[in-house]
């Protein structure tokens, strides 16, 4: 594959198939942790790392894992990665662990990771799989930070922890309810831009009920 194709693959994770706004996957953590830009960023970093590593691993072993038990095998791979990272950080990197420990443990059940392992890494070579995992992770991070920015600005009157608005903030925006509002509105905006400027069809309606 050429560089151009890798670049397209990477961009696909951010725009074409953005995990939150286009695939509508992993919405549960997208609501739960996006009360500020910072939280979204930390979660995004953790997901990007795990997803890239899982895609690489699945791609390497794709011909050795029996297709009939691939889902449990993928879940084991994800769980092993998150546990190893969790334990290693808890021991050697206390400051970072205090900030991110909570997020790392959540990652095991993320639909977006298992969905990329199943749809992409299990059918592609190592390098494209790594690029796909990385691109999807960055797309997830961008989405989380966008949601976090809107919620932090409206719900706390600040951005990146810096107070900006003097008026009384709308508490509802930091609650899960506000998270749904913001995700819905941003998803709509993404679809509108896609339709208006790129002639796309918009995200498939529905999504699904996985985490």
């Amino acid at each position: 594959m050429e560089i151009k194709q890798y670049w397209r693959l990477f961009k696909n994770g951010i725009f074409g198939e953005n995990p939150v706004f286009r695939l509508a996957l992993s919405l549960c953590p997208a609501v739960a942790v996006t009360t500020s830009v910072r939280n979204g960023f930390l979660m995004g970093i953790a997901v990007t790392f795990v997803m890239t590593m899982v895609n690489i691993t699945v791609s390497i072993f794709r011909n050795l894992i029996n297709p009939k038990v691939r889902i449990p095998a993928y879940i084991l791979i994800i769980a092993t990665y998150t546990s190893v990272i969790d334990m290693t950080m808890a021991a050697y990197s206390r400051a970072a662990y205090k900030e991110m420990g909570l997020y790392i443990q959540l990652i095991v059940v993320f639909a977006i990771i298992i969905s990329r392992a199943e749809l992409f890494a299990s059918r592609n070579k190592l390098l494209p799989s790594a690029v796909d995992g990385f691109g999807m992770g960055v797309g997830f991070m961008v989405a989380l930070m966008l949601i976090g920015a809107v919620r932090e600005l409206l719900g706390k009157g600040s951005l990146l922890g810096i107070p900006l608005v003097g008026a009384r903030p709308m508490l509802i925006m930091v609650l899960p309810t506000g998270g749904f509002f913001v995700i819905g509105l941003l998803m709509g905006t993404f679809n509108w831009i896609e339709k208006r400027f790129f002639g796309g069809t918009g995200a498939a309606p529905g999504g699904h009920g996985m985490h």
């Binding site: 038990v69 084991l76 769980a79 546990s83 190893v84 290693t88």
Partner: peptide
């Protein structure tokens, strides 16, 4: 096949735990 995956995961987890 699945047993091998589980045993491998177990070994990795156990050794990481023992070390950290």
């Amino acid at each position: 096949n699945l047993t091998i995956v589980c045993v491998l995961a177990g070994i990795i987890l156990a050794s990481t735990y023992a070390k950290t």
